[in-house]
Simulated scan of single mutants.
Amino acid sequence: MANPSPRLRVAILDDYQDVVRTLDCFGKLQGHEIRIWNDAVADVGILAERLADADVLVLLRERTKVDEALLSRLPNLKLISQNGHVPHIDLAACTRYGVLVSSALTQRPSHPTVEFTWGLILAAMRNIPLESAALRKGAWQSTVGLGLRGRTLGIYGFGKLGSMVARIGAAFGMELLIWGREGSLDRARTEGFAVASSKQALFAQSDVLSLHLRLNAETTGLIGPQELAVMKPTALLVNTSRAELIKPGALVEALRIGRPGKAAVDVFEHEPLTDPNDPLLLLPNALCTPHLGYVERDNYEFAYGNAFDQIVAFAQGTPINIHNPDVLKQGALQ
Results as ranks from 00 to 15, higher is better:
residue 78 K to Y: 09
residue 61 R to D: 06
residue 97 Y to K: 14
residue 92 A to L: 12
residue 63 R to M: 12
residue 115 E to C: 05
residue 93 A to K: 09
residue 113 T to C: 14
residue 86 V to K: 01
residue 38 N to V: 00
residue 108 R to N: 06
residue 67 D to Q: 08
residue 66 V to H: 07
residue 61 R to G: 02
residue 102 S to P: 08
residue 55 D to N: 12
residue 46 I to E: 13
residue 101 V to I: 07
residue 54 A to M: 09
residue 80 I to M: 05
residue 94 C to V: 05
residue 37 W to E: 10
residue 79 L to E: 06
residue 120 L to D: 07
residue 56 V to H: 02
residue 34 I to W: 04
residue 66 V to S: 07
residue 100 L to K: 05
residue 100 L to T: 03
residue 74 L to D: 09
residue 71 L to P: 04
residue 32 H to L: 12
residue 112 P to A: 15
residue 40 A to M: 08
residue 90 D to F: 03
residue 81 S to A: 15
residue 52 A to W: 13
residue 66 V to Q: 07
residue 73 R to T: 12
residue 43 D to C: 06
residue 95 T to A: 14
residue 110 S to P: 02
residue 120 L to P: 02
residue 71 L to R: 08
residue 79 L to I: 09
residue 94 C to T: 04
residue 54 A to E: 06
residue 76 N to K: 15
residue 73 R to M: 08
residue 101 V to R: 02
residue 31 G to H: 11
residue 67 D to I: 10
residue 109 P to M: 14
residue 100 L to S: 04
residue 110 S to R: 07
residue 44 V to L: 03
residue 98 G to M: 00
residue 49 E to Q: 14
residue 83 N to M: 11
residue 113 T to M: 10
residue 111 H to K: 11
residue 96 R to G: 13
residue 104 A to V: 09
residue 101 V to D: 03
residue 63 R to Q: 10
residue 108 R to S: 14
residue 31 G to E: 07
residue 72 S to V: 15
residue 40 A to P: 00
residue 47 L to E: 05
residue 107 Q to S: 14
residue 104 A to H: 07
residue 67 D to L: 10
residue 35 R to A: 14
residue 53 D to V: 04
